[in-house]
């Protein structure tokens, strides 16, 4: 007999294996193309996390923008410079072991610090009824958050125009 909580934990474990396994593949794979495919696996795991956290809209946005757009963009960039990939075998630089040491240290410190903080978790009633309304999200985005929203639109436009100018043949 499976309770609701056991199902949640099972889903969480599967998603964690996907996300962290994909992340491990991204940083350890020798072939960069495989790295990018592992990134897709990891990003799909994050989509599952958002769904598990009741953020359905964000899950769809993540799937569309990350998996649909950014991952494909990266795959295109890898294929455009592919001739080079085949020649070079070493993907890691000489300082990789220092990086591994520092990162391991950062991870341990993060785990200890995160465990010591007393997080002000909301009460049971509030946790059971989160505000998941997409309509309100849109209203807030065009109400109190309108200026940041417009700024990010301009930023995205500037980045895309800049990308076209940088990457076109001269």
């Amino acid at each position: 007999m499976l309770t609701n909580q056991m199902v949640q934990i099972l889903v969480f474990v599967i998603l964690t294996i996907m996300t962290l396994g994909g992340g491990l593949g991204v940083v350890s794979s020798r072939n960069l193309f495989h790295s990018a495919l592992f990134l897709v696996l990891s990003l799909v795991g994050v989509v599952g996390y958002y769904a598990l956290l009741d953020a359905g809209f964000l899950a769809v946005v993540q799937l569309l923008i990350y998996v649909g757009a950014i991952a494909v963009l990266i795959l295109f960039a890898i294929m455009l410079s592919r001739g080079l990939m085949a020649r070079r075998q070493h993907q890691r630089n000489e300082q990789w072991w220092i990086a591994a040491l520092v990162v391991l240290l950062v991870f341990v410190v993060l785990l200890v610090v995160l465990g010591q903080v007393d997080w002000p978790v909301a009460d049971e009633q509030a946790l059971l009824s989160p505000n998941v309304s997409v309509g309100q999200l849109g209203q807030v985005l065009l109400g109190p958050y309108m200026i940041p929203f417009e700024v990010i639109s301009v930023l995205l436009l500037a980045a895309l125009v800049g990308a076209i100018i940088l990457a076109r043949e001269t």
Partner: peptide
Amino acid sequence: LFCLGLYGALSRKNAIGVLLGIEL
């Protein structure tokens, strides 16, 4: 996940690999 991405960004030789780490 953050630490995996940090390791990828620091240890990769290839610029696209660094970018993958930043995405993580």
